[in-house]
C-alpha cells in the first residue's frame, strides 16, 4: 500500500460512514421514528440492514486498495498482509464512526418526531455486548475494543 493511499482511503471510509449514518437517522424512518428504534433485532441485537448491506459496503471501501492491488497484481504477499491489517482497521473505524454518528445526530440534531430525540445511546439499544458507564455516559462495550485496535494499527503503520 502506497503511503498516499492510506489517508485517501481513511477519508473515504469516514465520509461513507457519515453519509450512511445521516441517511439512516434522517431518512430510514417509519412515520418520523427512526427504523432502528422501532424494531426488535434478532441477531446480536444488531439491525439486519447493518449486517447487510451496510457492513459489506463499508468493508468494500475499506479494503478497496487491497482489491485494487489484487486485480492489478501489483503487490507481493507481505505487502498484501499489511494492506489487510490496514483494511481491517479502516473497516472497524468506519463501523464505529457510523454507529457513534447515529447517536450524535440523535442527541444533538434530533428529528422533531423522534421520541428518543436528544438522547445518546440507551442501554436497551446496545448490541449483545452491552454498554459501559464511563464518566456518567453510556458507551457500547464494543467501542472499547474497536477504538484501541484502530489507533494501534494506525500508530504502527505510521511509525513503520
Amino acid at each position: 500500500m502506497r503511503k498516499k493511499e492510506f489517508p485517501r482511503n481513511l477519508i473515504l471510509c469516514s465520509a461513507l460512514a457519515f453519509f450512511l449514518s445521516y441517511l439512516e437517522y434522517y431518512y430510514v424512518a417509519l412515520d418520523g421514528i427512526p427504523y432502528r428504534e422501532m424494531y426488535h433485532f434478532g441477531v446480536l441485537n444488531i439491525p439486519p440492514y447493518v449486517l447487510f448491506p451496510l457492513a459489506p459496503a463499508l468493508a468494500i471501501v475499506a479494503f478497496s486498495p487491497l482489491f485494487d492491488d489484487l486485480l492489478l497484481h501489483r503487490a507481493n504477499w507481505s505487502e498484501r498482509s499489511r494492506m489487510i491489517v490496514v483494511g481491517c482497521a479502516n473497516f472497524l473505524c468506519a463501523v464505529t464512526l457510523y454507529d457513534s454518528l447515529y447517536y450524535t445526530f440523535r442527541s444533538m440534531f434530533p428529528l422533531p418526531t423522534d421520541p428518543l430525540g436528544g438522547f445518546w445511546i440507551r442501554r436497551g439499544e446496545a448490541s449483545i455486548m452491552g454498554v459501559v458507564n464511563l464518566l456518567g455516559v453510556l458507551w457500547p462495550t464494543w467501542y472499547f475494543v474497536t477504538i484501541p485496535v484502530v489507533i494501534s494499527v494506525y500508530v504502527a503503520y505510521y511509525i513503520s
Binding site: V131, L134, L138
Partner: peptide
C-alpha cells in the same frame, strides 16, 4: 446495570 468504567478501561 451497565458495566462499570473499570471493566471498560480494562478492556481498553
Amino acid at each position: 446495570q451497565p458495566l462499570s468504567a473499570l471493566w471498560g478501561l480494562g478492556l481498553l
